[in-house]
């Protein structure tokens, strides 16, 4: 049935936005983290998304309708923040301390986008549901 596919596409959107939220939460929590397993300060994480072609090739139209998939989580390679803090145990000889390249404003903006996109996917789902229910009334 067609509506099942539409719902699946919306569900993939929900899943991906939730993952983005996880990454943002991680970035915010580690804004001041200077020690990681790999050594050095925490680096900002980003998600990479890709389209997920539908596995149903019975209709050519379906090829145009694609759900979204999480390709991976990568590190932001931009330079780290340098602050002067000689008292910190991780500071170098000159007293400079490298801090994560997390920008609070960027993270808050991304959080807003993630939230709105999540909401939009929920609305899309609701509409699909209402459309199907309306279709059941045809000819009644």
């Amino acid at each position: 049935m067609g509506f099942l596919k539409t719902l699946d596409i919306s569900a993939s959107g929900l899943f991906v936005q939730r993952k983005i939220m996880d990454v943002i939460a991680s970035n915010l929590a580690n804004m001041e983290t200077t020690r990681t397993e790999k050594g050095g300060p925490y680096r900002r994480k980003m998600v990479v998304l890709r389209t997920d072609p539908s596995d149903d090739f019975s209709h050519l139209l379906d090829l145009q309708m694609q759900s979204v998939r999480l390709e991976g989580i990568v590190e932001d390679k931009s330079p780290l923040r340098q602050v002067y803090d000689p008292a910190h145990p991780d500071a170098d000889k000159e007293g400079h301390l490298l801090k994560p390249n997390v920008d609070l404003v960027v993270e808050m903006t991304n959080m807003l986008i993630a939230r709105r996109v999540f909401e939009a996917n929920v609305v899309a789902m609701k509409t699909t549901r209402q459309m199907t229910l309306k279709a059941l009334e045809v000819g009644r």
């Binding site: 719902l7 919306s10 789902m125 229910l133 059941l136 009644r140």
Partner: peptide, 26 residues
């Protein structure tokens, strides 16, 4: 448990149930 997926399935299943009962009613 993936809560988004479960909610989607709940909606999906609800629609299938309604479709079947509607057909039965008719």
């Amino acid at each position: 448990v993936n809560i988004d997926r479960e909610m989607t399935k709940l909606t999906e299943n609800d629609l299938m149930y309604r479709t079947a009962t509607e057909a039965l009613l008719r």
